[in-house]
């Protein structure tokens, strides 16, 4: 103990509180702040839809078909004379729910599968990896159509199918990461200090393998959002009269010659949300890279 003062090599840096470190990070990464802000706004809008929407989503005013934007209807009305802004607001929770459901399913299936396949290795890895290759050969949308055909049409079924098609991508990524991490000396060292196999997988392999997965997950949220739009566009997703951005886009598409401005609102909503997820993913990649960790 007396020897502590021997070496003043490390100058004590005052530890900042979690909150102030978070603030510092926000200041250093404006892109992340914007995308998180936008996504939080979306969540808020989703929960507050009945309060902030100017009209009920299915209210019709038949005198106004495909009306252009004006003071009453800020974004105009659709082909059934419903308020576009209100439907956009009511569509937000559906679209977010769809994205998160698909990605949740993908993570739930893909990450544990990848961890086990990578950790066990050997012939099991060979067999399981070929199986994953086979799954990867399914085109996602086609599989989603098949699943909704089997389980019945609906947003939840469609997004389960999308999640199912994402899972092998994640599994393959996690497997590759696990292979790298499990051969690291600190895994052996941890075993040498008496850690059990589940402990090693949970505490050492997962945290070290997960970083690219977190990035992939944010990117997958964007892809899932687009998949929801595509499936709703094909009327396999959200069923009328419920609102969803993809469904709105699909309807507007029919009147593109008469009222092209109908496509802007849902199109922009999808575009901005997908962009926000992507930007968040990029920022996460930088922030989570352990070799770039700042104090």
């Amino acid at each position: 103990m007396t020897a502590i003062a021997q070496k003043p090599a490390m100058v004590a840096v005052p530890r900042r509180s979690r909150a102030s470190r978070f603030l510092r990070w926000m200041r250093s990464d404006i892109r992340a702040v914007l995308s998180i802000g936008f996504l939080l706004l979306l969540v808020l809008v989703s929960f507050a839809a009945p309060v902030i929407a100017p009209y009920p989503p299915n209210d019709q005013n038949v005198s106004l078909l495909l009306a252009p934007p004006d003071a009453q209807h800020w974004l105009g009305t659709d082909d059934l004379s419903r308020d576009v802004l209100s439907r956009l607001i009511y569509g937000a929770p559906n679209s977010l729910y769809a994205s998160f459901l698909a990605v949740f399913v993908a993570v739930l299936l893909g990450v544990p599968a990848g961890l086990v396949i990578g950790f066990v290795g050997g012939w099991f890895d060979e067999v399981a990896s070929r199986f994953i290759d086979a799954l990867l050969s399914f085109p996602p949308i086609v599989l989603a159509i098949a699943v909704t055909g089997a389980l019945g049409i609906g947003l939840t079924n469609a997004m389960l199918a999308v999640g199912f098609t994402f899972a092998p991508f994640l599994a393959r990524l996690v497997r590759a990461q696990t292979l790298v991490v499990k051969s690291a000396l600190y895994v052996d060292a941890s075993r040498g200090f008496g850690a059990s196999t589940p402990h090693i997988i949970w505490r050492h392999i997962l945290p070290n393998a997960i970083q690219p997965v977190i990035v992939q997950v944010t990117l997958a949220l964007a892809v899932a959002l687009l998949a929801e739009a595509a499936l709703s566009f094909l009327s396999l997703g959200v069923q009328p009269p419920s609102a969803s951005w993809g469904g709105m886009l699909a309807r507007a598409y029919n009147y593109i010659e008469i009222a092209p401005e109908q496509m802007y609102a849902p199109g922009m909503a999808i575009l901005l949300t997908a962009l926000a997820f992507n930007a968040l993913g990029e920022s996460m990649r930088v922030a989570l890279d352990p070799t770039m960790k700042r104090r």
Partner: peptide, 11 residues
């Protein structure tokens, strides 16, 4: 261990 550089978990 021989390699102190890699015997500690980086995260």
């Amino acid at each position: 261990f021989q390699e102190p550089m890699s015997a500690l978990d980086p995260v």
